[in-house]
Amino acid sequence: MLGHRYRFRAVDRELRWHCERGCGAGGSKSYDTAERAERYAAALDREDRAALGERAPLIGLLPLRLWRSISRKRQASSSPTPRS
């Protein structure tokens, strides 16, 4: 129901991932350098819960996107404008 929650890590030149929920899903991929594998692991292994709704899929989280958009517009219109 909730889908996979992959975690990524680099081991030498290999990028490895597994599902944090313990379902057994996972895999690996080899890169030409350990630095490249580490860079991909760092980029992919992050939680974006704070940004939920900002880059949400259009269909599934459309109400959340609309609510955030309206909230931003209200905040912008209620903030005082600086005078020169």
Score class of each variant (00 low, 15 high):
residue 36 R to N: 09
residue 11 V to A: 13
residue 48 D to F: 09
residue 69 S to I: 01
residue 29 K to I: 00
residue 13 R to D: 06
residue 68 R to G: 03
residue 35 E to C: 00
residue 69 S to Q: 11
residue 44 L to M: 15
residue 50 A to H: 14
residue 17 W to M: 04
residue 68 R to I: 05
residue 31 Y to I: 01
residue 81 T to E: 08
residue 67 W to P: 00
residue 40 Y to K: 07
residue 37 A to D: 01
residue 8 F to H: 10
residue 24 G to V: 04
residue 56 A to W: 06
residue 3 G to R: 13
residue 32 D to H: 08
residue 54 E to L: 13
residue 79 S to K: 09
residue 35 E to I: 01
residue 3 G to H: 07
residue 82 P to H: 04
residue 46 R to K: 15
residue 21 R to K: 11
residue 81 T to V: 12
residue 70 I to F: 09
residue 22 G to V: 02
residue 14 E to V: 14
residue 83 R to K: 07
residue 35 E to A: 08
residue 51 A to Q: 14
residue 69 S to A: 14
residue 19 C to N: 00
residue 34 A to F: 00
residue 27 G to T: 06
residue 65 R to N: 01
residue 75 Q to F: 07
residue 63 P to H: 09
residue 39 R to D: 06
residue 72 R to D: 12
residue 46 R to M: 12
residue 6 Y to K: 09
residue 52 L to P: 00
residue 68 R to F: 06
residue 49 R to T: 12
residue 14 E to D: 12
residue 23 C to E: 07
residue 76 A to L: 13
residue 65 R to S: 05
residue 16 R to I: 11
residue 7 R to I: 09
residue 35 E to H: 03
residue 5 R to L: 10
residue 38 E to G: 02
residue 26 G to T: 05
residue 72 R to P: 00
residue 32 D to M: 03
residue 17 W to Q: 04
residue 15 L to T: 02
residue 18 H to M: 02
residue 36 R to I: 03
residue 78 S to Q: 15
residue 55 R to T: 13
residue 4 H to T: 08
residue 51 A to G: 13
residue 82 P to N: 07
residue 43 A to I: 08
residue 19 C to A: 01
residue 49 R to G: 14
residue 6 Y to C: 06
residue 42 A to D: 13
residue 6 Y to M: 11
residue 8 F to C: 02
residue 18 H to A: 07
residue 73 K to W: 13
residue 25 A to H: 05
residue 16 R to D: 04
residue 72 R to K: 14
residue 30 S to E: 12
residue 56 A to R: 08
residue 71 S to N: 10
residue 62 L to N: 09
residue 27 G to P: 10
residue 3 G to L: 11
residue 28 S to P: 00
residue 53 G to M: 03
residue 31 Y to P: 04
residue 62 L to D: 09
residue 50 A to V: 04
residue 29 K to T: 00
residue 70 I to S: 01
residue 76 A to Q: 09
residue 79 S to C: 06
residue 17 W to T: 01
residue 72 R to F: 11
residue 72 R to T: 03
residue 53 G to I: 08
residue 69 S to D: 14
residue 57 P to S: 15
residue 64 L to N: 00
residue 83 R to T: 08
residue 50 A to L: 15
residue 2 L to A: 10
residue 22 G to S: 04
residue 11 V to I: 15
residue 28 S to Y: 05
residue 78 S to C: 05
residue 12 D to H: 11
residue 18 H to Y: 07
residue 76 A to K: 10
residue 32 D to F: 01
residue 7 R to N: 13
residue 35 E to Y: 01
residue 70 I to N: 00
residue 11 V to F: 15
